[in-house]
Simulated assay, not measured.
Amino acid sequence: MRTVDVARESGYSVQQVRDLERLGVIPPAVRAANGYRAYTPAHVHALRAYRGLAGAVGPVEARRLLARVRTRTLAEAAAAVSALHVRLARERDEALRAEEALRAIRDEAGTGGAERDSDAMTITELAGALGVRPSTLRFWEQEGLVAPERVTTLRARRYGLAAVRAARVVAALRGSGYGIPAVREIMGSLDRLDGLEDTARLLGQRLDRIADRTVALLRAGADLAAICEGERSGRG
């Protein structure tokens, strides 16, 4: 296949094909006797897979994953792809929990709802539930985003139900790319109806983006499978 053929089949321009080859997204093309690049269908599969992966996890991680798919065993390559699906599913679950937390914040605004001791979490428990490090929760505390209670003479952190809910919303906003100042402003607005509505809209957008990334990963699936099978059978 010529460069122009690969470009047409993959949806990239000729220059993009050359640039992505230079970046290692596709293996180097064989040079024909006349000096022109000679590609195979395997290069088309790699370019299509890269498009989907870049949409799902970003271009840098997409390049790393393609390298693993080409060089690892079939089991390792499949596990790497499966891990991306698991990651997106977890992001979606956490965004849904943040929406649920936001609804609870709205419903309990001004009601002084009762809280049970069993609703509280330690910093380790909350960090594990959110998929972040305890140091991240400490940083959020320093920035005024989440306010834990402190108990015992060692001042161990205890997160009550309100703090757990706030932390879920903060985690979802940070996952959407919002910086600390923006998150602080959003969290400070939750005592207002318009603040609650705006935050609900942002969380909805977060779920929409996760859905788009999941679809992009699904589109890459068939081409990733072709790469795995071709590399291990000696075809392409």
Rank of each mutant, 00 (worst) to 15 (best):
L47Q: 01
G221N: 09
V81P: 03
V60I: 08
A49T: 01
A211N: 10
R2Q: 14
I123D: 07
E61W: 10
Q142N: 13
G188I: 05
L84F: 00
L154I: 08
M187V: 13
L218W: 07
G195L: 01
E100N: 08
R51C: 06
G35K: 09
L193I: 11
A95T: 12
P134M: 12
T3I: 12
P28M: 09
R63Q: 06
R209W: 08
R106H: 13
R138A: 04
T214L: 06
M1R: 03
E185F: 05
A172N: 05
A80Q: 01
H85D: 04
H43S: 08
V25N: 03
Y12P: 00
A166M: 15
E229S: 07
N34R: 06
R22K: 11
A83P: 03
R209G: 13
A67D: 05
E9M: 15
L207R: 14
V164H: 02
I123R: 13
T214F: 07
G234F: 04
R106A: 15
S118I: 14
V215K: 10
A211T: 15
V169G: 12
V81R: 08
Y12D: 01
V30C: 03
R18Q: 13
A78W: 00
L88F: 00
F139M: 12
E76Q: 10
G160L: 11
A171F: 04
T199W: 00
V14R: 04
A78G: 06
R37N: 07
E149V: 13
S10V: 11
H43P: 05
L47D: 03
E197G: 02
V170K: 06
A225M: 10
T124E: 15
R235T: 15
E141R: 01
D191F: 08
A162P: 01
V6Y: 00
P181G: 03
S135L: 10
E99W: 11
A89Q: 04
V4G: 03
R174Y: 02
V81I: 10
Y39R: 02
A78I: 06
R168P: 04
A32V: 02
G58L: 08
A79H: 08
L74A: 09
S176I: 05
L217F: 01
R155N: 15
G35S: 09
T136C: 06
D194G: 09
D117M: 14
R87M: 07
D223A: 15
L193R: 13
G221Y: 05
R184F: 10
S176L: 03
G188M: 06
R63E: 01
R31C: 09
G55I: 04
I26A: 11
L47I: 02
E21F: 03
A225W: 07
R168E: 05
F139T: 14
A46T: 00
D19E: 09
T111K: 15
G113F: 08
E197M: 06
A156Y: 14
D191I: 08
L84K: 08
L74P: 01
G131C: 07
A56G: 06
G230V: 03
R31V: 02
V81Y: 06
P134Y: 08
P134S: 11
R174C: 06
G221T: 13
L84S: 02
G177R: 08
T73N: 05
G113C: 11
D93V: 10
L207E: 08
A120K: 12
D107R: 14
F139D: 11
E115P: 01
L218V: 10
G230P: 00
R48G: 01
G131N: 09
G221F: 02
R64E: 12
D194H: 12
A216W: 01
R37P: 01
